[in-house]
Nucleic acid binder design. Structure first.
Lengths: 93, 93
DNA sequence: TTATTATATGTCTAAATAGCTAAATAGTAA
DNA sequence: TTACTATTTAGCTATTTAGACATATAATAA
């Protein structure tokens, strides 16, 4: 269920993209300027984030605007806390 | 800093090992019985968790007992919450 | 010493990953 | 239509990864 999110989160570039998008939606090109990578490389990372449903995209003319899917991020955080936080493992049983 | 932890967390088998160890220390062999994988495969996963400092091991005769490094798990959770939780990105600045 | 048990490590294979350049696509405008 | 811009996709390479089996190591016991 959260497998894709974990995989997406395992890459530092993608984590930075998520942090960037926390400050607001951005164009694929704008996102790419924050990295030393070639633009297609960043595009691939965006595709991974999109496949994990962590971001949503929306075309505006020739631009494609990426936006954080806050719900998924929050759900994942809750799941992570439930499974690895706390102290004794199964307080929900 | 948390790169190793993210990588370790990205594998489902390792996540299950962490969940198992939340219930208490276990022998490498005991851990292995919970999975369909060959013993060396589980041993390799334990080595990854150990490299990420997520677990600590301690020999007891021929056995090696693995234990969760709760501090690292908590630190990672705090870091994840700080970076991906909340709503506006840089409340710590 | 030898034998046995528990675990790790060597070595290989198949699959996945991240990076690149080049080419394709989608939209806009002349 | 052509031309231009923004972005994705194709195709490739190098690296990493997870899995397996075989072998090595470490501790104990006889």
């Amino acid at each position: 269920m959260h497998e894709g999110v974990f995989k997406a989160m395992s890459d530092p570039t993608r984590r930075r993209i998520i942090e960037l998008l926390k400050e607001g939606p951005q164009t694929a090109g704008q996102i790419a300027t924050h990295f030393a990578h070639a633009q297609p490389t960043v595009s691939r990372h965006l595709a991974v984030l999109k496949a994990a449903n962590l971001v949503v995209d929306q075309r505006d003319g020739t631009f494609i605007i990426y936006q954080l899917n806050t719900t998924i991020v929050q759900d994942w955080l809750a799941w992570v806390l439930e499974h690895f936080g706390g102290g004794h493992g199964d307080e929900t049983n």
